[in-house]
């Protein structure tokens, strides 16, 4: 084993300090060191997107980021998406629309889709399909994943307008 370096990670709002090999991938830091096994690994070439997490709010493939690069960064994983026992609208929509089968690509899909809805709260089907092209699914043919993301966008829009009404 080569020399380790201290890394400070902030994941889902919780601070972690670890000693890591400089070559340690962020995905392995999350899974093997922090026990956050919801982020999955499906390939060696950054094609499948199963490992997608948020890096200062942007979706990234955590198999292509070194843990040391995440030092001081705000990382969000699938485990951080539900808040106060409430599912994120995307989680709810994936459940309602049968947007998953084996569930292995699902955390990455949800994180990638969440990134899209942050950038574009009201995407077209075409935009959803292109935003998810870095995430592979073998089970669903993407049909219900796309449907779920479109439905979540509607729900999220509704939530936002309701909040606006309340604050007004």
């Amino acid at each position: 084993m080569s020399k380790t370096v201290p890394v400070h990670l902030r994941v889902n709002g919780v601070e972690h300090q670890l000693d890591a090999e400089p070559r340690l991938l962020l995905v392995h830091a999350l899974r093997d060191h922090l026990g956050l096994t919801g982020t999955h690994v499906g390939c060696d070439t950054s094609n499948c997107g199963a490992c997608t997490v948020h890096f200062n709010g942007q979706p990234v493939k955590s198999c292509t980021v070194l843990a040391v690069q995440a030092d001081g960064v705000e990382v969000t994983t699938i485990e951080g998406m539900a808040k106060d026992g409430e599912l994120h609208p995307l989680q709810e929509a994936f459940w309602n629309d049968h947007g998953l089968q084996c569930g292995y690509c699902t955390p990455g899909m949800i994180m990638a889709a969440a990134g899209l809805l942050e950038r574009n709260p009201n995407p077209s089907e075409h935009e959803v399909r292109h935003a998810l092209e870095g995430n592979l699914c073998r089970c669903t043919g993407y049909h219900n994943i796309v449907k779920a993301v479109l439905d979540a966008a509607k729900t999220k829009g509704a939530t936002v307008s309701a909040q606006r009404e309340v604050s007004a």
């Binding site: 899974r31 994936f94 459940w95 049968h98 569930g103 955390p107």
Partner: peptide, 19 residues
């Protein structure tokens, strides 16, 4: 009926071998 499997899978709490 929506699936009984899904709550654990959409929250990252499924246990695959590597987990």
């Amino acid at each position: 009926m929506r699936r009984k499997e899904d709550p654990r899978l959409i929250t990252g709490k499924g246990s695959y071998v590597e987990d």
